[in-house]
Design a protein around this nucleic acid. Sequence first.
DNA 1: CCTACCGATCGGTAGG
DNA 2: CCTACCGATCGGTAGG
Lengths: 214, 214
Amino acid sequence: MAKWPTRDRILYEASRLIAARGYHGATTREIADRVGIKQPSMFNHFASKQEILKALLVFDLTIPSQQAQRLASQDADAGVRLYRYALWDLRWYQDMPFDLRGMHEELVQEPGLEHFELALADWTAAIERMLGQGVTAGEFRGEAAPFVPDVLDTLSWEFVRSSHRETVSDNARRAVEDGAAFVLRALLVDPTRIEVIQRQETADEPLEAEMELT
Amino acid sequence: MAKWPTRDRILYEASRLIAARGYHGATTREIADRVGIKQPSMFNHFASKQEILKALLVFDLTIPSQQAQRLASQDADAGVRLYRYALWDLRWYQDMPFDLRGMHEELVQEPGLEHFELALADWTAAIERMLGQGVTAGEFRGEAAPFVPDVLDTLSWEFVRSSHRETVSDNARRAVEDGAAFVLRALLVDPTRIEVIQRQETADEPLEAEMELT
DNA sequence: CCTACCGATCGGTAGG
DNA sequence: CCTACCGATCGGTAGG
């Protein structure tokens, strides 16, 4: 972390402060203090405080939204697609160095962030499409489906590593599978199908998406 | 809502603004505007902005924390206690007129709110006690238990009525049972026990706790 | 519950 | 990347 480029250190410290005090409570002076520079120097890296937030929301929201839309339109059955998406999503947040702890809905309402508000809506819609198809197919419990988007969101944030890009342990990798299985167990009409779904998932090639800063 | 006492209208509008923009983003001028008074008039009802937040956190955090601690120490089996708590919790938020949408962890870190930080810790501990006992008894899945506190928290917030104290419909009441069942289905080693637990719950007298403003 | 007003702090700029 | 500084807005007070 200490040897990151200044721009990335700004993003990192900003994300932690925003998670702790909200966007308006995270002042540019305190972000700069933690980075170790003076407040006006930040504006050499970002044109405004809002540009910092936008850069964070790309990792936090735009990329996962695109991935959900991609997976929703594959042609596996709904259970497999949802499990696959859940795994990707939980791993994504597990590797993410920026901790914005579930403030999507709050942040996206800031004036000037309408673009991200749309990405959030598309994200939710993609997940709800998978859920609807599973319910229609008799695969998912209709009364459980409405809870899934928010529960997935919460589990994601439990996996955000607030710490500094340590190597993620094997235990932690397994916990991601437990998280995805948690959702499916509550959702599937026949919970014993989970093992079939898990085998089908690991048989396919892994869906990697590298996280690149800057 | 329009005929509430001014003090309650302040609490209501403050909760909505805090949920939308965070504590620091919710300005006293905008709260006052929505209530229909001038900003300095608010300080006749609350000594400071933080006192508004404290009043909200009593409903939002102190009372549910106490209820969790009460239910955790009853002598039913862990599944019944957890289901009973989940029902109470989801109903509580369903009836709550103040929408603070899951900002506990953020809000509780404000200087001066250490007392609420402790209530939050006690709350989590009470739920974890129930979970630990269920896992030891072979009733709950050990790998699912760690997700339950946050998932319960999320479901609660889905039930917060942002609207103005409308009568809650029967459909909505049923959704609460679906929410509690969602958690137990993912958690129970034997999910078919849910029906037994539900019968045992409705056999006992209901645990009412009236919500009183002011 | 209002008008008038305060010191402190905010995000951001100028100029080096 | 720094010092010096700006107008706007913040939470809160005085006095009626």
